[in-house]
């Protein structure tokens, strides 16, 4: 049997990798991919805890997380396409229309 803390440590590592990727890249597509990495880490946590406590609530919650990730990708890419059409770049630093 694999101890529970193996899974939590793996999930923490993946979450921090996603966080660093979100902060150091400027390409908006890469930012979405980093969000997917972080959501994946959260899913690992939910499923491992639900399995170790013989409960199924965590697995259902992880299915909801997947559905929300799909919705987020759809809306985010809609915004990205509109942004690219206006500015011809996909650099997140260039999105400064509402900056003082």
């Amino acid at each position: 049997m694999i101890p529970l803390y193996y899974y939590t440590i793996l999930s923490a590592v993946l979450f921090v990798i996603g966080l660093i990727g979100f902060l150091i890249r400027r390409n908006i597509i890469l930012l979405f991919m980093s969000i997917e990495v972080m959501l994946n880490a959260v899913n690992i946590n939910l499923v491992s805890f639900s399995s170790y406590y013989d409960s199924l609530d965590g697995q259902i919650l992880s299915i909801f997380v997947m559905a929300i990730a799909a919705a987020e990708a759809a809306v985010g890419f809609g915004i990205l396409i509109a942004f690219y059409r206006n500015k011809n770049v996909i650099d997140s630093d260039k999105a400064d229309l509402m900056k003082w």
Binding site: R26, E36, I81, Y84, N88, V89
Partner: peptide, 30 residues
């Protein structure tokens, strides 16, 4: 579901968007 939804559907959306955007002059990423 992870394979159906993530590796199937979401990656296809990503690749479609990458296909539509000119990445060479789109970003400096630095």
């Amino acid at each position: 579901l992870q394979i159906f939804l993530y590796a199937g559907a979401i990656i296809v959306i990503y690749l479609f968007v990458i296909m539509m955007i000119d990445l060479r002059k789109g970003t400096t990423d630095d």
